[in-house]
Design a protein around this nucleic acid. Structure first.
Lengths: 191, 191
DNA sequence: TACGATACCGAACGATCGTTCGGGAGTCAA
DNA sequence: TTGACTCCCGAACGATCGTTCGGTATCGTA
């Protein structure tokens, strides 16, 4: 049971590389067991805890808790809590950030017009396509055939697009402006 | 080849539900073929285009292009290009952001000491645990039993932790400071 | 010391895997 | 009509799958 933690970690790494879980024989080689039977028992333990499941084809597949990453609170000093049983919180980042995959598009940010909102050039925003947006939403608008990232605001009864950077002017759209979608998430990779 | 597109869509749906690709027999039932041989040929076509691959255990696994999300360039107006053949760039966000799952921890950001680096309170950073860090890295340090997010810098030959917010002082660590890990990614959810 | 529980091994089982091969049905151009 | 090509079927193959079973080593508890 103590070792299971390490076994799981190896499986997670393998899955991260291959996007599939290996066969029992491969698992044995991977984690350092030398019998498929041992693997079967270990897998059963992981199943019992919800880390893995079986697919309809008796294939191993990640379970609910497989993707749970230790979410460290900014208080504790030692290692992050060993995920005793606390709420998983984070499933996959994908699911967390993209609730409606079929309606979503990834857009790489260019320029710094939203830098005061913490959106930098090179960041990637998750845009959910829709025509309606609320005041306060960060929207992707199409102006002169170009995507533009701005915050939607209202001014004297009219819709305006407000950049979050004092160096840029507020855009007061004429008719040729169209809302492409609203920003529902953002991510950034360092290095 | 025309049907392959639909077949792929079904596989993607299946994968979204189960996080595994089915066996050839199951694929046959799933997409409406009645011979594993037909499936094998279809799979070969998808393989050739990079949508699926084979794992070391001859298991089907998603290929590079399997997760293609439309990445819109900031030029085109209409719908994002229908994945003609351009490099998709972004795979899954998870994989993109967390290269080493077992060594990574998610930390929710509190406070605004890094706001000039575009890291706001409430953002979640992906922290890769390691003791060594380079100057310029954003690191998570443990100071007085608390996690702190700062940029690692060098000053007169000494390591210092520099906040990205003029309102905060530079921290010149004594001995009781420990690097917990470095920040490799960040994501944020709106709404 | 004795005991049950736990974690692993090693061999064997039938079931299912993906591959292979010959052939049928359809389309399109010559 | 003919031939080439694509897409699929159906049956058979050995390989590999996950499961099962008895057996061993190491614990903590009594």
């Amino acid at each position: 049971m103590a070792n299971d933690r390490q076994y799981l970690a190896k499986l997670q790494d393998y899955y991260a590389r291959h996007r599939v879980l290996p066969s029992y024989a491969s698992i044995a080689a991977l984690v350092g067991l030398s019998s498929k039977a041992s693997v079967a028992e270990m897998v059963m333990r992981l199943k019992a805890h919800g880390f893995v499941e079986s697919s309809p084809d008796r294939r191993l597949k990640p379970g609910k808790r497989f993707f749970e990453r230790p979410v460290a609170e900014s208080v504790r000093a030692g290692l992050p809590a060993p995920a005793s049983d606390a709420a998983p919180e984070a499933v996959t980042i994908d699911e967390h950030l993209v609730p409606h995959p079929s309606r979503s598009v990834l857009v790489t940010v260019k320029g710094d017009s939203m830098i005061d909102a913490g959106i930098h050039a090179g960041d990637v925003v998750v845009v959910e396509k829709r025509v309606a947006a609320n005041v306060g939403d960060i929207v992707v608008a199409i102006i002169d055939n170009e995507f533009t990232l701005k915050r939607l605001d209202r001014e004297k009864g009219h819709i305006v697009l407000r950049p979050e950077n004092k160096a840029y002017p507020i855009i007061r759209p004429k008719d040729d402006t169209e809302i492409f979608g609203i920003v529902v998430g953002l991510f950034r990779k360092y290095r």
